[in-house]
Design a protein around this nucleic acid. Sequence first.
DNA 1: GTGTATGCAAACCGTTTGCATAAGG
DNA 2: CCTTATGCAAACGGTTTGCATACAC
Lengths: 137, 137
Amino acid sequence: MKLHNCSAELRKAKLRATPARIVAMQIFEKSDIPVDSTILFKNLKKQVDVDRVTVFRMLNNFLDRGLIKKIEFGEGKSRYELNGPEHHHLICESCGNVEDISYCNVENFGDEVNRQKKFLIRRHTLEFYGLCNNCQK
Amino acid sequence: MKLHNCSAELRKAKLRATPARIVAMQIFEKSDIPVDSTILFKNLKKQVDVDRVTVFRMLNNFLDRGLIKKIEFGEGKSRYELNGPEHHHLICESCGNVEDISYCNVENFGDEVNRQKKFLIRRHTLEFYGLCNNCQK
DNA sequence: GTGTATGCAAACCGTTTGCATAAGG
DNA sequence: CCTTATGCAAACGGTTTGCATACAC
């Protein structure tokens, strides 16, 4: 059980370790693709009695404290994932699966942009949409 | 006046050239940053009497016919721009201004991803967030 | 005990849908 | 004339807010 880790992590982020939050963190740790509020809510419900509103408040709390980050895949809703090392996503337009890619050569490109446009880049988003290996068959 | 061009363009896309659509196309042509439904609605209202619903329907029609494309900047709403040559955006987190960049070296990176992950890339999104030249001062 | 987190109800915003009317070709 | 676009009203899904209560520390 990672329960203790999650509690500690929450307290370290100056958040009270409530049951809902602990389970939410566990769900984030277990899920391999970014979750949206509805998925998180449904999975939470299996273990704790929690309100939808609380889920949104948790998400915002976690975001504020930098525990998670928000992503959008153009679905008209937000997704969230643990705020780990920078990476990008391969989103299958057929089955919806999401794979992570860690390598990114955009930094060099960013430097170029910086020089040319005098734009100070703080972060960037890069998502690839297409067909995963399975769905190509 | 570009009115005639817009009408022609609409008809070429097999869409009836109604006043609202013609003005909408003109607004797209004039605006240098991607517009959202509300901005488009307000600007349309200055020239034609149009309903909010009609704006959304127009946007979807234009999307279907490939006249425009949809973009998201993580604002919880969609933005739209004319479907011209591929480019990416520099979004200023301070003033909200958006600059276009045309050069993109992501293709090479995409090939790499393709080989490594056997993922067939159909399109990608790449947006830079930071501070524009003005807002750095 | 004190301040933070939660539940509930209600509202908000962007967007979609159904249906009858209007208008482009 | 026939089909497509529009307006209006209503609904939808995701998200936020106000307020009183419950709970973590």
